[in-house]
Amino acid sequence: MKRYALFLGCTIPARQPNYELSARKALTKLGIELVDLAETTCCAPPPVRSIDLETSLAVAAYNICLAEEAGLDLVTLCSGCFESLSVANNMLKGDEHLKNRINRVLSEVGKEFLGSRSVKHYLQVLVEDVGIERLKRNVSRSLSGLRAAAFYGCHALRPSGLLGLDDPERPRILDDLIEALGAESVEYRNKLKCCGGLLRGYSDELALDLAREKIINASRAGADCIVTLCPFCFVALDMGQLQMRSRYKETYDMPILHYSELLCLALGADPKELAVQTHKVKIDKVLDKVL
């Protein structure tokens, strides 16, 4: 059984406990042990980076130090956390000068970044530690007939040089994982473009425009739902549709699912256990199709 330190970050505990729930259920069922670390903080994502890059690296490195002390690799459910921690981890591993600079800061709290651990997104854990074949064998409720639009968002893939999760131009990981559950992964235009999530709060109009395009393209391609791997993308597309309804006076009804939710369904979970009622766009259409 492989053990990981689960890094929750901010958005998931604050807004999406249902995501955490499905992820914990699925990973545990597939033999992954998750350990909760004390004293973690925000991962220092783009908003913190915007204020001060050095601070963001130091904060990310601090959190990695906690995992190093626990002797565990980190796993994240959020692409924002994945990117912040991976960028810091790999930048500091590759730049002695920068590492020393950040370690001077960390010495204030008695920490030292060693660079001995890796940071993974939970999709990587599913592919690398569980394996597509074992995943398939565990599927008790095939999702065949479901047309799902994989949405990668940005920070699971880019900057690719520091993340290395998948080919940034032609990623397959989420498509493969969707197809492993028996569903079909549909192609749609601008699949790899941004959800607009990081503009929310600064320019809601632009953020919504970006999100809207994804909803429209996916539904044109005949998708039953969009599958995300990041809580920010989820909010932008799910909550976003409510906001779009009032802004564009159009009807949007595209269910958005976390991949872990789809996975739980395929592993046989009862939707009631997954608290899916918290979704702003109801996912009944999807449930009807797969149950």
Binding site: L37, A38, E39, T40, V59, Y62, E108, V109
Partner: peptide, 13 residues
Amino acid sequence: LKPTGVEALTRIL
């Protein structure tokens, strides 16, 4: 939820 490391964070900041 486990407590956050807000004190350490303050010192880093």
